[in-house]
Write a protein that binds this DNA or RNA. Structure first.
Length: 554
RNA sequence: GCGCCUGUAGCUCAGAUGGAUAGAGCAACGGACUUCUAAUCCGUAGGUCGCAGGUUCGAAUCCUGCCAGGCGUACCA
């Protein structure tokens, strides 16, 4: 529809120029927008105001000339007017909206899909939590955002792959192993002082118990390094398995789980380091090896090899991001916690140093989640091991409520997640509000079937019966859906779809309360069923992008 | 100190590329169930868009300076 209007305006402007009513043929991009206020029409354009300086004419005069030359072959316009400083407002014939319904029914689950991605190979890496403990709510938000972004990009014609990077190397893992080993020794009766920087959670004791069961007291006889290593591998392996399970029950799957250790094993980190040396992008100082990230916009240079000979995480991250490009991805998106934002410039620097464009690298910084219960903060501390896991949250409120709530905010905005609200079945909790639309429509269809309406097919006469303001409003709202999806993809902002769904749900509930779908007139009933089934499709379509289910019954 | 993010109704938040009278939900108040699920709807009330300048036909949106909050500023991960 928007496209049609755009063409209409452009050819009108051209017509006005040919007729000598506009001095210049230089036209800016025609921007058509839907005004917020209904009395300003279905669409409006500011073209006359933008052209004013080019044409050297007052905006309202330009608007006049354009309107005069609009040729409306399909008779979609009911009215045009010039308003304010020079807006052209266009009012669409009510019945001209009806084609949207046919489009939705024809395209079904594909309604709103597009090819703006052009098959571009794009990778979304998210969660990537260290395998040193269970996932908590913050990871859940990252998972919901990353997964939804991937879904939306896929829907818009990108070739998307989802990846989880496992930090299964380095000191953190060693600390994990040490933590388990110490608890294990404790179980065998040794008195030990448990260090503060070790992992405190109860899950560590459970691993120690399992190790004791399978290995008895044999581990204590080995040398400590290999015993710790054994514990580390054992614990990390189990934690990863749990993380996979938790994410699966959250509806999140990955195309690939990429191991950091494998970057070392395959020599990719060494290759990067020798390559950096060869290209003189690194230098030695104070016994350490520094990457000249400053040359690429970072505020200071960064260490890749410490003076004790060990590589930093940055070193493997360079290799990892390099490997992403080597695998053919043209665009890479990392979903990180907001506390990592200081890390962006150095990764961006390394990417640029390797000849890629900084634009090919995006970071979605997800702000933290405050967990509440009935308005009271829930104590969260990873250090002491007192935290509510993602698993607990899913168990308590269900995956749908959790995912939806995670996506009700711009990711850059901190989010309060109240467990009590997430369980509420009122308007305070938008998940049910949206899902309820789907269930309600399903219920209407069931009821209709009882009354003998076995199927709903397209019937133009029935569709022509749809003239109520609430009906036209619903159709207009649905007509906007494809555009919402495209913005959501372009800006990588899934919350736009969440808000759209709440708006569509609101339009539907208002309509439902005012008009009966199963009316006395069979023709009208047919038209209205056709309408609400379109709503049902759009709701399901959007919920699917967010990874939320659309129930037939509630 | 420097850098990033945030500041919009009592509360929680939307407001892409600058547009006309800044919008939802909650809370408050008043209404609507013999009818397709009241997990719903309708109405009332609520605003110096942190502050001050600037840019222009036009600013919540762009620029500058300040104020407040969060985070980051490791040879940590």
């Amino acid at each position: 529809m928007k496209q049609k209007i755009q063409n209409l305006i452009l050819s009108a402007a051209t017509g006005a120029y040919k007729n000598g009513e506009l001095p210049s043929s230089e036209f800016p991009d025609v921007e058509i927008e839907a005004p917020k206020i209904e009395s300003h029409g279905d669409f409006s354009t500011n073209i006359a105001m933008i052209m004013a300086s080019i044409q050297k004419m007052p905006p309202r005069k330009i608007a006049e000339a354009i309107i005069k030359h609009i040729v409306d072959h399909d008779k979609i316009l009911a009215k045009t007017e010039i308003a304010g400083p020079g807006f052209i407002n266009l009012f669409i014939n009510k019945t001209s909206w009806h084609f949207v319904l046919r489009k939705i029914h024809e395209e079904g689950a594909e309604y709103g899909a597009s090819s703006i991605g052009n098959g571009k190979k794009i990778q979304v890496e998210f969660v990537s939590s260290n395998p040193t403990g269970p996932l908590h709510v913050g990871h859940g938000r990252g998972a919901a955002v990353g997964d939804a972004v991937a879904n939306i990009l896929l829907f818009c014609g990108y070739d998307v792959k989802k990846e989880y990077y496992i930090n299964d190397s380095g000191r953190q893992i060693n600390t994990l192993g040490l933590s388990v080993f110490l608890r294990y020794k404790e179980l065998l009766g040794e008195k030990i002082e448990f260090p503060e920087n070790c992992y405190q959670g109860d899950y560590i004791r459970e691993f120690a118990e399992e190790v004791r069961k399978s290995r008895g007291n044999k581990l204590i006889e080995e040398d400590e390094a290999s015993a710790v290593n054994y514990c580390a591998r054992y614990a990390a392996g189990n934690i990863i398995d749990d993380i996979k399970k938790d994410l699966k029950s959250f509806g999140v799957t990955f195309d690939r789980w990429y191991s950091e250790q494998s970057l070392y094993d395959s020599g990719k980190v060494d290759n990067v380091l020798s390559d950096l040396r060869k290209r003189k992008l690194v230098y030695e100082k104070d016994g350490a090896l520094w990457f000249k990230t400053r040359d690429y916009g970072d505020e200071k240079d960064r260490v890749v090899v410490r003076n004790n000979g060990l590589t930093t995480y940055f070193a493997s991250d360079i290799a990892y991001h390099q490997d992403k490009f080597d695998r053919g991805f043209e665009q890479i998106i990392d979903v990180w916690g907001a506390d990592h934002h200081g890390y962006i410039p150095r990764i961006a620097a390394s990417i640029e140093a390797y000849g890629h464009n900084k634009d090919q690298f995006n970071v979605i910084l997800v702000q933290l989640v405050n967990l509440l219960r009935g308005g009271e903060p829930v104590a969260m501390s990873t250090r002491t091991g007192e935290f509510v896991t993602l698993k607990d949250v899913i168990k308590e409120v269900g995956p749908d409520a959790a995912r939806f709530i995670f996506l009700t905010r711009h990711y850059e905005s901190p989010l309060d997640f109240d467990l009590e609200v997430a369980k509420k079945k009122t308007n305070e909790n938008p998940v049910f509000y949206v899902q309820y639309v789907h269930a309600r429509i399903s219920s209407i269809v069931r009821k209709g079937r009882e009354m003998g309406i076995s199927s709903v097919t397209r019937d133009d006469k029935a569709i022509a019966m749809l003239k109520e303001p609430e009906e036209i409003h619903l159709i207009k709202t649905m007509a906007r859906y494809p555009e919402v999806v495209r913005y959501s993809a372009r800006l990588m902002e899934p919350h736009r779809i969440t808000f759209y769904l709440m708006e569509l749900a609101s339009s539907f509930h208002a309509y439902y309360n005012k008009h009966r779908v199963l009316a006395d007139d069979p023709l009208l009933t047919g038209g209205r069923l056709y309408l609400v089934l379109a709503v049902k499709k759009v709701i399901k379509n959007g919920l699917t992008l967010l990874g939320v289910s659309a129930p037939e019954k509630m």
